[in-house]
């Protein structure tokens, strides 16, 4: 089943066209990697998928679980199961991760017309997810992302992902700023959360994350278009020849 279908998507920011006709189909159970040089439009694509307002879609559409995604506000897209692991997670002083997540879970459940979880039920669920990911609990009582190291922020994103249990997870440059141990932990977490019902889009500049999260399909995004789609064998080639190889192939 097609979980996500992006058709001829054009988008601009501040009047400048960044996405110039993206076509992409993701099925349940798949892991897709989107690679590309800086400025190709990778982060714009994740922003458009998640409904960031400053990005203006000028043409095309996105079908998610059979719904017109572009009509939904950002919070409803999240409640429908789209999760973005941010490249730069934002700090919210004074609000602990526990409180933040409890609010988020409450909103998701309200949207799905499920009864709210009690404090105890929520904490139990949170502990289970932390055990699954092999994370300790020293971060969850601190203000969200405030004073966290790069690795701690990314681990916290994956914990949020585990708790919110998305249908489509988008990892935007999740490997940036991670040392090898943190990278491994984060990747293991993502792999553990994989299921036949959900899908993952890994957006990355480098190969190294894809050594741990092995993609089924690899796309190369260049100048606002997907210029090449292949299997995981594309990754080492790209690492070897660099993006110039793609640019030359196009010219």
């Amino acid at each position: 089943m097609n979980l996500l279908e992006i058709k001829d998507l054009h988008a601009e920011v501040d009047g400048k066209e960044i996405l110039k006709g993206i076509n992409l189909t993701v099925k349940a159970g798949e892991v897709h990697a989107i690679m590309g040089p800086n400025g190709a439009g990778k982060s714009t694509l994740s922003a458009v998928l998640t409904g960031r307002e400053r990005f203006n879609v000028t043409k095309g559409n996105i079908i998610f679980k059979g719904m017109e995604l572009l009509q939904l506000p950002a919070e409803d897209r999240a409640r429908e199961g789209i999760f973005l692991s941010f490249q730069y997670p934002v700090e919210i002083p004074g609000i602990s991760t526990v409180n933040f997540l409890k609010t988020a879970v409450g909103e998701h459940r309200k949207y799905k017309k499920l009864p709210p979880l009690s404090g105890g039920e929520f904490l139990k669920m949170l502990r289970e997810k932390m055990e699954l990911l092999g994370m300790d609990n020293k971060l969850i009582n601190r203000s969200l992302n405030e004073g966290f190291s790069g690795g701690e922020k990314k681990k916290n994103e994956i914990l949020q992902m585990a708790v919110l249990n998305p249908t489509l997870a988008i990892l935007d440059e999740t490997d940036s700023g991670l040392d090898i141990d943190a990278l491994r932990l984060v990747a293991q977490g993502v792999n553990k959360l994989k299921s036949p019902d959900n899908a993952t889009i890994v957006i990355t500049h480098y190969q190294r994350l894809l050594d741990y999260i092995v993609p089924d399909v690899v796309h190369i995004l260049y100048d606002g278009r997907i210029v090449k789609t292949a299997g995981k064998e594309l990754v080492p080639e790209l690492e070897k020849y660099g993006y110039d190889w793609i640019k030359e192939g196009l010219s």
Partner: peptide, 17 residues
Amino acid sequence: GEDQIFYCNQRGISNED
């Protein structure tokens, strides 16, 4: 910041909340 609000939106939390 808009980035703080969007971060919350992306976790299913409305602008007001």
